[in-house]
Amino acid sequence: MHRTESRTERPVGGRDWLSVAFLLGAVLLVYYLVPLLSLFVAQPPGAVLERLTAPEVLAAVRTSLTGALASTALAALFGVPLAYWLARTDGRLTTVVSAVVVLPLVVPPIVGGMVLLTVVGPNTPVGDLAGAAGIPLTRSLAGVVLAQTFVASPFVVITGRAAIEGVDEGLEHASRSLGKGRLATFRRVTLPLAWPGILAGITLTFSRALGEFGATVMLAYYPRTMPVEIWVSFTTLGLDAAFPVAVVLVCVAVATIVVLNDLGRRPLG
């Protein structure tokens, strides 16, 4: 519908701002796409397939996907309620909480990993307790999930909050005046209307978790995720050995975005 509006708009002074905007943006698009395409072109398909079937690569794909799914689920479970609270509350506490939420984004991931080690690492009360219970929090899938959740979850909170703020509060009042409580109102009115935005946040969180390296390498060098495997291949065997794994990671990431995007087109509930 915006397209029809722009058609009726007359170019001012012979220059159409819309075309200029696209040309400027196109520079950035080329900068995104060219390196990715060259990655694919530079890799002979045989080499990619060969690396893909290597046991250590398969294990890394499995760890990355399992970890990212688990951390995204955790981020959504705790992050969507936080997004709702932030969207529907005003005051100083809200400001403080929003600042805390962006903290993991401004802290470099490797520092995030170090901070997490001081809480869940070996020789910490939490780490020892979990270890004694048979769930080691470092050098384990749990460590991967903890690192990914820390770094990636703010995306679902921030994007979800904006989406929920976009839902007219009058609709929530209408629902409640019809006798539905806050939870029922959230489930039947707010969530369906905010769903495309919340799903965008979930997609961002998943993509970020899949690519997480800095915090993960501190908390869980083993089991290796794909980014760690790329790093290891690069440092031990050189750049050429790392490229095929990178292609696999890109393919997995693109595939998930396509799937999530398709989910977003369907109405919820």
């Binding site: 009058g170 009042h173 209408a174 409640r176 005046s177 019809l178 006798g179 539905k180 409580g181 806050r182």
Partner: peptide, 11 residues
């Protein structure tokens, strides 16, 4: 709370 007032409000 709103939901237990049984007051219908037409916006």
């Amino acid at each position: 709370p709103l939901e237990s007032r049984r007051v219908g409000l037409v916006f």
